[in-house]
Amino acid sequence: MAAGGDHGSPDSYRSPLASRYASPEMCFVFSDRYKFRTWRQLWLWLAEAEQTLGLPITDEQIQEMKSNLENIDFKMAAEEEKRLRHDVMAHVHTFGHCCPKAAGIIHLGATSCYVGDNTDLIILRNALDLLLPKLARVISRLADFAKERASLPTLGFTHFQPAQLTTVGKRCCLWIQDLCMDLQNLKRVRDDLRFRGVKGTTGTQASFLQLFEGDDHKVEQLDKMVTEKAGFKRAFIITGQTYTRKVDIEVLSVLASLGASVHKICTDIRLLANLKEMEEPFEKQQIGSSAMPYKRNPMRSERCCSLARHLMTLVMDPLQTASVQWFERTLDDSANRRICLAEAFLTADTILNTLQNISEGLVVYPKVIERRIRQELPFMATENIIMAMVKAGGSRQDCHEKIRVLSQQAASVVKQEGGDNDLIERIQVDAYFSPIHSQLDHLLDPSSFTGRASQQVQRFLEEEVYPLLKPYESVMKVKAELCL
């Protein structure tokens, strides 16, 4: 049975990233139509530049190519590739079939990587351009969430054990800070992308030097003109047959890092959902379990974690691919890159769409948070109580021993009897502590235990987050809708 299948058929496997999760716009960027249309555009740009620099290419040939950029006979191309065992030459023939007058000058002087690699770089750039505003929107939604809850005390956790208090907004800023680093890295790697350009079979530009009869300047002009037509500021000066596969490492490393950030955020949300302090959106008709109707599973956060793990592992592909590119190139890269580049971007696209949807509907339960604080705060307040007693004339050592005994009794009630923490009640009825009984409410005010959390939130948002989001103001209103 021949390899390949009808990918629109229910009898043929289709990647869930495309069929179930990723956005239509990201799927289109990695589609065959987008790819092969870009090949034709690159052939047109090459012909236009070659004509401008004096090669015998007519206006009629150029116009014929322009008129057929979208006229792609995919069936013919597939048949040609089956016959020739070469995808680029299959599309040269297919393009030439609908451009008979231009057929002889299509791909003039070029090698397969002229269309293959340059198209990949265009796709990487455009895919990054799709991700950047999506990530900015996630940051914006979380920034709104953090600002609104900047002063809401909550129990902090280290080692997932109760620690000092923080605020809900401050905790959210930990998430935002990681995503801001990801946004900066995505922008950097996007701006650092260079075009492969017009380089020939081993990167020496020998074929173009021959076409222009040894004119170095025209060869350099050709490279520059096509690079500018493709919208790049610069091209690699040095290439082998391909652009260095280190570029793929750079791009997928940034995406993998984004995956790590999203995994951490969504894990926190899942843990908070278990504590009943916070939940992701839950639709009115949504079913959490087929057997347990009360369940409210954090399905979206779980999906993000599941896909983020996949995204983090994909960076190993370009690392290994770059390491086995012998001399000017081997074909070890080809099949692998067809999979890992598309999957990385479709996965990143999915987790950003999902995280935006989550961040637009996060639900906080202040009463649950308050109750958990009441359970733990008495123990945390013991040092403040000791200091207040010393100020009232008591002995630190005597007070410490009193607190120690009462704390152990209260802990026994919590752990052995399943009761509430009654340390404060014990202190309130103990005559030894009568000098500070009137101060206990103040000493137990949760806001006095959150330090500068709310001020940190305000400063972080104003100095770091809002300036970073400013270039994306025009796209901030787009909502994230999930079908599944």
Score class of each variant (00 low, 15 high):
458 Q>P: 06
246 K>L: 03
245 R>N: 02
158 T>M: 04
166 T>Y: 00
283 E>P: 01
197 G>I: 02
194 R>K: 14
467 P>N: 15
472 Y>F: 13
397 Q>I: 07
336 N>G: 09
413 V>N: 10
390 V>G: 07
176 I>Q: 06
177 Q>P: 01
140 S>G: 12
39 W>D: 15
403 I>Y: 10
291 A>P: 01
197 G>L: 00
480 A>G: 12
137 R>C: 11
166 T>K: 04
394 G>F: 12
322 A>H: 04
234 R>T: 11
93 H>N: 14
162 P>S: 08
258 L>N: 09
454 S>H: 09
232 F>S: 03
19 S>W: 15
26 M>I: 14
168 V>S: 06
433 F>V: 04
343 E>R: 05
372 R>S: 03
8 G>V: 13
63 Q>K: 11
90 A>K: 01
455 Q>V: 11
387 M>F: 08
105 I>Y: 04
112 S>V: 00
265 I>N: 07
163 A>N: 00
272 L>Q: 06
135 L>K: 13
272 L>M: 05
178 D>F: 07
412 S>K: 11
50 E>T: 12
95 F>C: 03
141 R>P: 07
148 E>I: 09
210 Q>C: 10
240 G>T: 10
299 M>F: 10
305 C>I: 04
161 Q>C: 03
419 G>T: 11
91 H>N: 06
450 T>D: 00
31 S>T: 07
226 V>L: 12
30 F>D: 03
267 T>R: 01
361 G>Q: 04
409 Q>F: 02
367 K>S: 11
228 E>W: 15
20 R>L: 04
254 V>I: 11
285 Q>E: 06
297 N>D: 04
115 V>W: 03
375 Q>F: 15
135 L>T: 12
49 A>K: 00
12 S>D: 05
232 F>T: 01
100 P>Y: 11
423 L>F: 14
423 L>V: 05
460 F>I: 11
346 L>S: 15
477 K>Y: 15
397 Q>G: 10
299 M>T: 08
468 L>E: 13
369 I>T: 08
373 I>Y: 03
198 V>Y: 02
332 D>E: 01
216 D>V: 08
310 H>V: 11
149 R>I: 07
89 M>I: 00
261 S>K: 08
246 K>V: 03
390 V>D: 04
455 Q>M: 14
88 V>R: 00
393 G>F: 05
24 P>Y: 12
413 V>L: 09
29 V>G: 08
291 A>D: 04
447 S>N: 15
328 E>H: 08
188 R>H: 15
87 D>N: 14
340 C>I: 14
288 G>S: 07
299 M>Y: 10
90 A>P: 04
197 G>A: 12
28 F>V: 06
416 Q>Y: 14
233 K>P: 08
319 L>P: 00
113 C>K: 06
455 Q>D: 01
46 L>H: 05
368 V>G: 04
124 L>A: 10
470 K>P: 09
163 A>S: 14
253 S>V: 10
159 H>T: 00
405 V>H: 05
369 I>G: 11
460 F>Q: 02
104 G>W: 12
483 C>R: 13
389 M>Y: 04
390 V>P: 05
103 A>E: 10
48 E>F: 01
275 L>S: 10
77 A>F: 15
233 K>N: 14
69 L>A: 04
386 I>D: 03
413 V>C: 08
176 I>V: 13
213 E>D: 05
188 R>C: 05
367 K>Y: 04
212 F>Y: 08
383 E>K: 01
106 I>P: 01
364 V>Q: 04
219 V>W: 08
205 Q>V: 06
93 H>K: 10
77 A>P: 06
32 D>Q: 11
3 A>F: 07
259 G>Y: 04
141 R>Y: 15
430 D>P: 15
150 A>S: 11
19 S>Q: 10
102 A>C: 06
301 S>T: 01
14 R>F: 14
201 T>V: 11
365 Y>D: 12
436 I>G: 06
105 I>T: 06
379 F>M: 13
377 L>Q: 00
384 N>P: 07
268 D>S: 13
292 M>G: 02
311 L>D: 00
265 I>G: 06
411 A>W: 06
417 E>Q: 07
242 T>S: 09
31 S>A: 12
144 D>R: 14
473 E>S: 15
46 L>W: 02
284 K>N: 13
70 E>C: 00
470 K>Y: 12
312 M>Q: 10
238 I>H: 15
81 E>F: 00
197 G>M: 02
244 T>R: 01
339 I>Q: 12
390 V>Q: 15
429 V>T: 11
227 T>M: 06
470 K>R: 13
212 F>H: 03
277 E>H: 12
4 G>V: 13
470 K>M: 15
293 P>G: 09
61 Q>E: 05
302 E>V: 00
304 C>E: 08
145 F>T: 15
239 T>A: 08
